[in-house]
Nucleic acid binder design. Structure first.
Lengths: 347, 347
DNA sequence: CTGAAAGCGCTTACAG
DNA sequence: CTGAAAGCGCTTACAG
């Protein structure tokens, strides 16, 4: 037993076991240990293989990824930038990505951008410094750092929201425009009039396309949106509440409201209740995303179900493609996942 | 201009700028560049300092953390293990920790344990391989790997749930026992009888202490809990629903139900509604955590407000203490944060 | 089949 | 004030 190994037995808290500890203990070179660890086993004799494996198990050796990373210029880290962890819909996407990732030996660094370009840039810088192998950018906002990043070698997959104009990379999400139009068709079919919209920030492709699809389909169905019935909100409940308040303050009230996401719909719902307006008798509400909590906490909300659970595997597939150099350089390749119109009692 | 620098101008996608690129460009050694980067500036002349800084800015150099980490045996990574990201309460804690952390130059690796000891162990192993500087363990479960980890050098802070018996480390959370007893006092004061409980897994210190505090205070107030009115649930809505179903199936129904967390209360609430039972007229419900969504989505739920927003700074303080070697080795040092009893219409 | 050696991107005593 | 050199924990051509 080496001195190091001996001291491990004595000390309460032990130093990290390194590759040369294993090598010494097994009586081989570190090259051989490395080969065993990395499964280049056909280059190692059966006998040696077993002995080294035994020592590895015995000493509970776990190769420091950092050493390998430095040598191979390749970490096993993937960053997920997310606008708001407390939005359960985003959290569910994060969940899905994390579980797809852990299966491939990667670990996820989580960064909260809060929809703030400066924070997004800060984290993009940080992630570059950490030499992450790839970035999943959920809810990208336009920023100088993002444009700079596009010129570097770090693969980025855009999730739920397309890259800003002039930036290229695979996109994983749904056909928001089409989904928006289906909400309009539903309203038309029900004969709701006049219709209104509380949409999300139009700088977000998801919010913009949802709204445009809705607006255009409504117009095609013979109902042009009254500008006073169109409001832009942030993607949270407070903003939904505030904008519903304005929308419902006048004498002429909308009969149905398209909401940019479920959180906005929750806020609008609350305001309706406060005003004594029945949903859907007086005002119909339609959400977007199908927040996983809906089933329990808003089982009344008609919404567009975005398949958050299947985002993870698609994001990983796209990252793999980028790593293998298979993705086209200057295109936004779209991986559109199927959504579902979820009709419940709010319409 | 060096060849490398020249080629950077030409290529669309550029290789990483390294310390020796900067050194060459600035006409100094890499030692000097390192000193400038690390602010050992009093050892560098004003003139050199400025020149190097200019080159760094110009080349947009960001030191690879991995190089520094290998040399100093110190990464800037902290792992957060979390039972369930889609529980908004946990997500809010993650949020708080992440934002406290990013201020100190650390990045957070997020791992989903799903309350599964095997997954927890898998991630503990991974995090050791990543040489994380510390671990925040939200909702620890007992596991062989956790016990092994306790013998190593990686600082662990236990969040919301205390370490299993025999494992030591700082704990950040609330006084769950006291909070549980306050729920009982409230029920007693309202004259609710008989009282019931749907508690979380008793292997979790938080769940256990909440329940025991409630049970004991109830007994002290002259009301011993009827065993048939005590049910153990998982910390989610489905389980809350299922257990409420059982609890409310018999002829003799509880007048008030203590729920191990808000999710359980949501599930119980739904079952009450389905049975046509009024809350609180027929059944009173009390939750735990005060999920950030409550204000919007369950404004009726009386609950214990756990100050999730202030977890982050306390967790970071404890990690700092561990890094500075100030924490006692074999004690569970408790950092108890103030909670608040949030009375709303469900009681 | 195996080992000695170079090198990944940094930091930091040491010498000047 | 500055630089040459060693070394952090690995991998991998190269030589034997």
């Amino acid at each position: 037993m080496s001195r190091r190994a001996a001291s491990r037995t004595l000390l309460a808290r032990t130093a990290r076991v390194r590759i040369d500890d294993v090598a010494r203990e097994a009586g081989v070179s570190i090259s051989t240990v490395s080969r065993v660890v990395n499964g280049v086993a056909n280059k190692v004799s059966e006998e040696t293989l077993e002995r080294v494996r035994a020592v590895i198990a015995d000493m509970d050796y776990r190769p420091a990824r950092i050493g390998r990373a430095l040598r191979t210029a390749q970490t096993q880290l993937v960053a997920l930038l997310i606008p708001d962890t407390t939005n359960t819909f985003y959290a569910a996407i994060a969940n899905s990505i994390e579980s797809s990732m852990s299966g491939t030996g990667h670990s996820m660094i989580l960064c909260n951008t809060g929809e703030d370009p400066a924070k997004q840039d800060h984290y993009l810088d940080e992630m570059e410094a950490h030499m992450v192998r790839g970035i999943a950018l959920l809810g990208a906002v336009d920023s100088p750092g993002l444009r700079k990043m596009a010129r570097r070698n770090i693969p980025i997959v855009f999730v739920n929201r397309k890259p800003p104009p002039g930036i290229y990379g695979p996109f994983v999400g749904i056909d928001n425009r089409k989904a928006g139009s289906e909400v309009a068709l539903h309203f038309l079919q029900r004969g709701f009039r006049p219709c209104a919209a509380i949409h999300g920030p139009l700088t977000s492709s998801a919010s913009r396309e949802r709204f445009e699809g809705y607006r255009d389909a409504l117009a095609e169905g013979g109902q042009r949106l009254d500008p006073q019935f169109v409001r832009g909100a942030e993607l949270n409940m407070q903003s939904g509440y505030d904008n519903a308040e304005t929308l419902l303050a006048g004498r002429k009230k909308p009969r149905a409201i398209f909401c940019g996401n479920d959180l906005i719909a929750y806020g609008a719902f609350r305001r309706c209740r406060e005003l004594g307006l029945g949903v859907p008798e007086d005002v119909a509400l339609f959400g977007f995303d199908d927040n996983p909590l809906n089933e329990w906490i808003a089982p009344w909300l008609s919404t567009v179900h975005v398949p958050y659970d299947s985002f993870g595997s698609t994001v990983m597939t796209e990252l793999q493609r980028l790593w293998e150099g298979k993705a086209p350089a200057r295109r936004v390749e779209q991986r559109l996942l199927p959504y579902q119109i979820q009709l419940r009692s709010s319409t």
